[in-house]
Every structure is written in structure tokens, then in C-alpha cells.
Design a protein around this nucleic acid. Structure first.
Lengths: 229, 229
DNA sequence: AACAGTTTTTGACATAAATCAAGGAAACAG
DNA sequence: CTGTTTCCTTGATTTATGTCAAAAACTGTT
């Protein structure tokens, strides 16, 4: 039942690699189960390797001194995380833990760096992964600094609708509390905004199922962020 | 007077490259003067290459629909920028313009990708550059989401003191308005915070010269972000 | 079905920072 | 220098969102 090879050969990082290279990779990698809420690494840890999510979902986050959490990324199957220390030479800039029951694959730093120097296509894939992540960060900074919570929320819904390829209904794959943390706010505020959006007929909320009733309205909200009360 | 080679051979990206490779690089690159306020590229532009700052200072930023600006990075001599589209295949996620009279070097996408596939050490350097940038972004997100303006400002001062290797006096190399935009706030707020910090004896402000009078106090402020009025 | 635990919602209130408006200082060009 | 433009500061006010406290709605478990 070793599906790690399948996940890897499908992943952004290793797609296009010949069968035998994948085999060599799985040989140097260590698989690890992760329980919900279990810490994988902490901000400040040295970081002598990186991970690929095989199954489940991993969050990467920061905590304020008062305990507020900001989620930086959520990673599903096939997605690598924790690569920054491998190339920057510095410690993990954030912490990672499982959001649900998960499995991850750990790749030791040296073995992976060796692979990259001999295999330009892996290097190119890694560059693409990091570039895409930088892109996402620019959007996250833009959201936090230039947009208000309703606009971020509307943007999130529209993005999810695309990813879930369903233009008018999405299902949250994380709790509302986690969503609040991802959007840079707190559960109370998120709850209030959801109610407001419902009252205005933009969405209909049933637990984790969100029906998008007014896409033009949501698109407008995501861009201009104004909501008349 | 072609110092581009010198700047390149000193740069993070090309350090360690043999003389002849640097020469080959400058052969494919195009030098371009940039006036203060001159646009280099805009968010959404295709991006068929990236840049290295030779001289001066370049800012990369986002604008809100209402015109507020958030600066994402400031790049000085030797620093590359605009690489994301080269590897992600997508458009520029932000815009770039000169802050002062500058010179930049443009590298066409294809030539650079070719260089990387044949030259693992350049690939590794680029990975290091992108990783470091990701690191900075996590800090920026943390600042925007988990810290208040006084804490960000104190953190900025301490960072500058380090970079300028002078523990008790720093000189701003950008205007206060630009600093506000970098910290994710507006000039009015920045001005008020500076006054407050002066009143509390944390710093002394004389134009662009900031004297750090109370490092422990500033460090505390940067971490906990509380300032009694 | 009932319990303990968590997650979500709601209300009243506090506050950091944005906005609006205007005056002052500094930098720059002629 | 001297006028003009840009940058910076200050005050009064508004607003979005965080805080605190408590109730309500789920979740899964014996």
C-alpha cells in the first residue's frame, strides 16, 4: 500500500522525473504519520530537511506573543513545505502542524541538494514552487495591508470556488476558526462578516457549505471591499 | 567605466561564478537607466525576464483600488528582482519603480533559464535568493497581522541599526512617507508614532537621522508592541 | 440519549489606526 | 536667495476590528 511513489510522481516538485529517480528519492525519504494538532517543526528549529505532504493537511503558521495565530499556508497531498532552511541556511521562519490526520515524507537536506545539482529539472521545479509561493505571499500581504476583512473573505470564496471547480457552492475544508486565522482575523469577526454577507444576499451559509448567491456582488466586494450595512 | 561586472560578481546571485561566465552574462544583459519615480514594470505585465539593480534603489509595491501603496521590497545594488515570472510562468504579481536615480540590468528569460540548467551553482544561488525572500515575507506577514505599528517601527529601526552596523544611530535611506508605506501604514500615523517614541525617550529624531536612545526599550516594544501613553 | 468537549455565534464595549482638513518645514528650481 | 512644490506634522473625528463575556450549536463518545 505504498502510495508515496504515486503522490510524488504526481507532485509539482517531482513530476517528469523518471521512475528510477522517484524510487531513489523514496529510498532516502522517511515517512511519518502526523496526528491532528501534532507539531512537525517549530519556528527557530534548525531545519535539516524538508517535507512533502502525502495525505491530510498541514498548516504553517506564526504565533504572536499574545497567542494569536496567523496561518501562512495550508498544504495538501503532493505539496512540499519547509524548504526555506534547505536553501537559505537559516532556521525555520514559522511552525508547522497537522490540521487533520496526515502523513508526510521527510527529505534530508544533503541528499536533496545533491539531487538538485545533478538534476536540473528538479532544480527548475523547485524554483517554480518557490516562485509560486512568493506570488501567494504578495497576495497575502496585499490582503492584509490593503483590504478589509469582507474583501478578503469574498476573495477567499471566489478562489475556493475555482479550486473546487464549482462556481456556486463551496465546502470549507477547514474550520471557521482556522479560516479566520488564515484571513488574519478572529472567529468573532469572521462570524459577524458571514452574517452580514448572508443578510445582503451575497451568500447562504449552512455549516461548512457556502452557497455563492451573487457572484458579481462578491467580485465587487473582493475588489473594492465596501459593504453597505 | 563598466562596473556592471563588478556589481554582478559581488552579487548574491552570481558570486562564485568564473570570470568568463560573468562576461557571457553581461553580454546577454541589457543595461537601463531608471529615473526617480519611473516605472520598470507593472503588476500584470507578462515578464519575459528579470532585473538586477546596479545602482540606486528600486521599490516593488502594490496599490489598493483607493490608491494606498504597500511596499513589498526595496532593492539596492547587486540585488535581483522580478524573477517570479521567469519560473512561475505567470505575470508580475506587483509593480516596480525607481526611488532614486538608478541603473538596472535586464536578463531575458530564456538565456537565464539556459544558464541555470547548465550551471547548478547559479541554480542554487537563485534558490537561496528566493528562500531568503520567502523568509522576509513571513516576517512581513507576521508584522502586518500580529504586530501594531509601533512594534513594526521599532523592529525596523533595530534591523536598520544592524544593517548599517551602527548600534545607536541610523539614517533613513528612504523618505518617511515611503517608510510608512513599507510598514503598511500612512504618513500621519508614522509621524504620530515617532513623536510618541521621542516623548518616551526611546529615540531622538532629526530629519532622517534617528538616534536609538533606549535599545532594551525598543527591543521590548518590537516584541510586545505595547507603549504606555 | 446524554455527556463533555469544542466550535460558533451574539452582544456590549474598547481601541488602534484611518480619514479629513489644514498648517508648517524642508527641498528644489529658476 | 525666493518662490514653488513636495514632504511632514498636528488636531478632530470616524471606523473597522479586536476584546471580554456568555450563550448556543455542533461533535463525537461512553
Amino acid at each position: 500500500m505504498n502510495r508515496s511513489k504515486d503522490v510524488l510522481s504526481q507532485s509539482i516538485l517531482f513530476s517528469g522525473l523518471p521512475e528510477q529517480d522517484i524510487a531513489a528519492l523514496t529510498a532516502i525519504a522517511v515517512e511519518k504519520p502526523v496526528a491532528p494538532g501534532e507539531l512537525i517543526f517549530s519556528e527557530g528549529d534548525p531545519g535539516d530537511g524538508f517535507y512533502v505532504t502525502l495525505e491530510g493537511m498541514i498548516k504553517v503558521y506564526k504565533l504572536s506573543t499574545e497567542g494569536k495565530e496567523q496561518i501562512l499556508h495550508m498544504f495538501g497531498p503532493g505539496e512540499p513545505f519547509g524548504e526555506v532552511p534547505v536553501f537559505s541556511g537559516k532556521a525555520f521562519p514559522a511552525s508547522a502542524e497537522g490540521v487533520k490526520k496526515s502523513r508526510v515524507l521527510f527529505f534530508p537536506r544533503k541528499a536533496f541538494r545533491d539531487l538538485i545539482t545533478t538534476n536540473p529539472s528538479v532544480a527548475m521545479n523547485m524554483l517554480a514552487v518557490l516562485s509560486r509561493r512568493l506570488r501567494n505571499f504578495t497576495i497575502q500581504v496585499e490582503n492584509l495591508s490593503l483590504k478589509e476583512v469582507p474583501a478578503r473573505l469574498a476573495g477567499y470564496f471566489l478562489l475556493q470556488a475555482e479550486e473546487q471547480k464549482n462556481p456556486d457552492t463551496i465546502t470549507l475544508n477547514i474550520s471557521k476558526g482556522q479560516l479566520a486565522s488564515f484571513l488574519g482575523t478572529i472567529p468573532e469577526t469572521l462570524s459577524r462578516m458571514l452574517r452580514k454577507m448572508s443578510e445582503q444576499g451575497l451568500v447562504e451559509v449552512q455549516g461548512r457549505i457556502i452557497r455563492l448567491l451573487d457572484r458579481p456582488g462578491l467580485e465587487d466586494l473582493a475588489e473594492f471591499g465596501k459593504m453597505e450595512d
